Amino acid sequence: MAPATARGLSRRRRVLGDNLNAYGFLLAGIVCFALFSWYPLIRGIVLSFQQVNFVTAPDWVGGDNFAHLFSDPLFWTAWRNTLEFTAIALVLGYAVPFAVAVVLNELRHLKGLLRLAVYLPVMLPPIVVVLLWQYFYDPDSGLFNAVLSSVGLPTSQWTQSSSTAMVSLVLVSTWANMGSATIIYLAALGGIPGELYEAAELDGASLWQRLRHVTIPQLRFVLLVMLLLQVIATSQVFIEPYQLTGASNPDTITIMVLIYRYAFTVNNDFGLAAAASVVLFVVLGAFSALYLRITRERT
Score class of each variant (00 low, 15 high):
I253F: 11
V100C: 06
R293L: 04
V61S: 07
T82R: 00
P154Q: 03
V100D: 00
R14A: 09
N268C: 13
A247W: 12
P3E: 13
S168M: 00
A4R: 15
W79E: 01
L207Y: 10
V282T: 03
L229R: 00
A176V: 08
R11D: 12
L284C: 12
L258H: 08
I88H: 01
F270P: 03
P250H: 06
I216S: 00
V279C: 08
N21L: 14
A99E: 07
L169Q: 05
R43S: 13
V46G: 04
P40K: 06
P241F: 09
R12S: 11
V282P: 00
V279E: 03
W208R: 06
T182C: 04
Y242E: 15
S150C: 03
P241S: 05
T82Y: 01
D18F: 14
R261C: 09
F221I: 08
G246E: 06
I127L: 12
F66A: 02
V151T: 06
S48I: 03
H213M: 09
D251R: 07
L47C: 08
L27M: 14
M226C: 04
A187E: 02
N268F: 15
T155Q: 10
V15Q: 14
V231G: 01
R7M: 13
L113C: 05
A87C: 03
L90Y: 02
V172C: 06
E106N: 00
G246Q: 07
W175Y: 03
V46E: 04
V15D: 11
V128M: 11
I216E: 00
A28I: 15
Y262N: 11
E195H: 13
L292N: 11
V52I: 07
W208V: 12
G17I: 04
F49N: 00
A95R: 02
L131T: 11
V167I: 10
P139C: 05
R296L: 11
S37R: 14
Q209L: 10
Q134E: 15
G17R: 10
G152N: 01
D138L: 07
A57K: 12
L169W: 03
Q157K: 15
I232C: 00
N19T: 14
D203F: 06
P3I: 13
S162I: 13
D72A: 04
N105D: 00
V237S: 07
G112H: 14
L35Q: 09
L290G: 10
M226E: 04
R80H: 10
Y94K: 02
G29W: 15
K111V: 01
L143H: 01
K111R: 05
L196N: 03
V283F: 13
S248Y: 14
